[in-house]
Design a protein around this nucleic acid. Structure first.
Lengths: 235, 235
DNA sequence: GATTCTTCTCTTGTATACAAAAACCGTTGA
DNA sequence: TCAACGGTTTTTGTATACAAGAGAAGAATC
């Protein structure tokens, strides 16, 4: 439908562009959790008036990335440890559901995509590039989301993945996480190709939940990140 | 923390109030899916300027209730039949997850709440009041959400329940749906009280998915609703 | 007569102006 | 020295003003 060759010009809406820019800056940690997002500063920074800034902040607030405290301003949502666990618990379930459905609904072409994504992960891991692995990993999971044949589910999974992005990134710093992640991927791929939905479901669930089990490592990296952030604020 | 006895006065933000008002009107069908939400009309209707109206619409757009087509305006999100099935599929999974966790995490007090909510459903059903049953049913499900011990999950479930509200309401018009719903509730309650997580999970999943199986009835009611809407548009 | 181009209007999107609430800060008092 | 009070200032929230794109209606052309 809207895959027409020449889109007539999407008409750039400043507010939407700003929303994506802010989203990106939050996901990549430019704006750390708890940071206050001053409207006038942002307006100056982007060379626009406060109106589109406000609209972007409201949209971000609705999707949970920022919190708007009435008459106090917008703050990057701080996610406490317990809430983070809750979110990972839900993420695990969504991904498990995707895997289960993917077993039944993936086409041959989907299988090829899955293998390609897995191969890309392997290469990034072999090259020892954590950032490359991070993105390859995202693509791998997204392939499964799409393979579920449920576009709404895929959107939900993507949205939550996005919210957890800053924290998942920290995860990969944990010793040997990349290697383990990769072998878990292998198990998942095998299960999906074999059409074993029970196995795929549980493999993906533990792949996500493993972060909960390795909780000590996880908290440790969080604490270190907080300390680094604190130092940055001090400077 | 914020459970202080005397909240100092939440300071009413017009935009937030508007958002809730519009949300309610959409959920109850005052604004049917596909309806265009004109900013100036809404502004006049609520006696405010366009600014808070826009902010409310943007928030609703982010939560999926309305669609903002750039430079064309806001429309109540039209949910096609296939997407509706997808959403119910996800809803079923979220509820199943809540039930599974509730089996392990509900306290004795939660069990009492659950029984009370079930009792309220029974009374509403016996009284033959579909609307009362609808609300009692919402409370019943919400009790399970809370019982999951995962507040993020509970929020997600509530949000999706809210988006599906107009369609679930139609569901109850189907012949004998209330009676069947009630007996399914009984199965769920028994499973949760017994701590049988497998059974609770599958019972709740089918409780939601049953709407997919009864798909012919469902489409029929949708078609009738669409026809009614079409007539309204013509007039 | 149908189609396309033009113009006009209406609506959205952004900027600015104004009001009110909250934060800041220095002063005053104990 | 510290706490409380009052005024100032900064910042959010809402209203209004202005610009530009989309839609509709009419004129011109084939």
């Amino acid at each position: 439908m809207d895959a027409s060759p020449n889109t007539p010009k999407p008409a750039p809406r400043t507010a939407q562009v700003l929303r994506e820019a802010l989203e990106y800056d939050i996901a990549t940690g430019v704006f750390a959790p708890g940071t206050r997002l001053d409207e006038v500063s942002l307006a100056k920074r982007f060379n626009v008036s406060r109106t589109p800034i406000r609209e972007a902040l409201i949209a971000l607030s609705a999707s949970g990335l920022v919190e708007i405290r009435p008459r106090r301003g917008a703050f990057v949502q701080e996610i406490g440890v317990s809430r983070l666990i809750e979110m990972f618990e839900v993420m695990a379930e969504l991904e498990a559901m995707c895997a289960r459905l993917a077993c039944r609904r993936m086409t041959a072409a989907d299988h090829r995509d899955l293998l390609a994504a897995h191969e890309a992960c392997t290469q990034a891991a072999d090259a020892g590039e954590p950032d490359a692995y991070f993105y390859a990993n995202e693509t791998f999971h997204d392939t499964i989301y799409r393979g579920s044949g449920n576009s709404f589910l895929a959107e939900q999974a993507r949205a939550l993945q996005n919210r957890l992005k800053p924290y998942r990134r920290l995860q990969l710093r944990v010793r040997n996480r990349v290697g383990n992640s990769l072998s878990e991927h292998q198990t998942i791929v095998d299960a999906i190709l074999a059409g074993d939905d029970r196995k795929a479901e549980s493999a993906l669930r533990s792949h996500i939940l493993i972060q909960g089990e390795r909780f000590n490592d996880f908290v440790a990296s969080l604490v270190r990140a907080d300390a680094a952030q604190a130092r940055r604020v001090m400077a």
